[in-house]
């Protein structure tokens, strides 16, 4: 199967407000008619995921999950989009799990591979921040303790 998936960079390019509005109106219209096509749902969901606003992203991921639930034939694709959505939201753990599942199905998928490395990088970055924080706290602690000890010994 030819993979036709966007790279993670694509998710960072947000649509203009008008475009998103058009997609939203289309989705709302079909929702009112109680028959929403998969493509419309995806369009709106993906548009939302591309958006920089977090509430939009959450809603977008929710729509993608909806597609995942209702359309078994679209699940393979949705795995990637869900991974991407979670990645963008910073839920790296979820992103990694979705992406791993996709890689398990399609080990050669380039987009999935690149996303996997991106997730690893992001996790590592946060790990460093965390380590730095922990290190800082530890340093502060040792300083305080040292100060106390010195004070106690001086007394």
């Amino acid at each position: 199967m030819p993979t036709d998936l966007p790279y993670a960079a694509d998710a960072e390019v947000s649509l203009s407000y008008d475009e998103l509005e058009v997609l939203r109106l289309q989705y709302q219209k079909e929702l009112a008619q109680s028959h929403v096509t998969v493509q419309t749902t995806f369009n709106y969901g993906w548009g939302l995921v591309k958006s920089p606003i977090r509430t939009h992203q959450v809603e977008g991921v929710r729509l993608l999950q909806e597609i995942f639930r209702t359309e078994p034939t679209r699940r393979r694709e949705c795995l990637y989009y869900l991974a991407l959505g979670h990645y963008k939201m910073g839920n790296f753990e979820e992103a990694r799990r979705f992406n791993d599942l996709l890689l398990q199905k399609e080990p050669t998928n380039l987009q999935a591979q690149s996303l996997a490395s991106l997730i690893e990088k992001a996790v590592a970055r946060e790990g460093y921040v965390g380590m730095a924080l922990a290190g800082g706290v530890a340093a502060l602690g040792t300083l305080l303790v040292a100060g106390l000890i010195r004070r106690a010994t001086r007394k």
């Binding site: 910073g90 790296f92 753990e93 590592a124 946060e126 790990g127 924080l133």
Partner: peptide, 8 residues
């Protein structure tokens, strides 16, 4: 991952 969540 623990450090990552801490960093977050």
């Amino acid at each position: 991952m623990d450090f990552a969540s801490l960093g977050r």
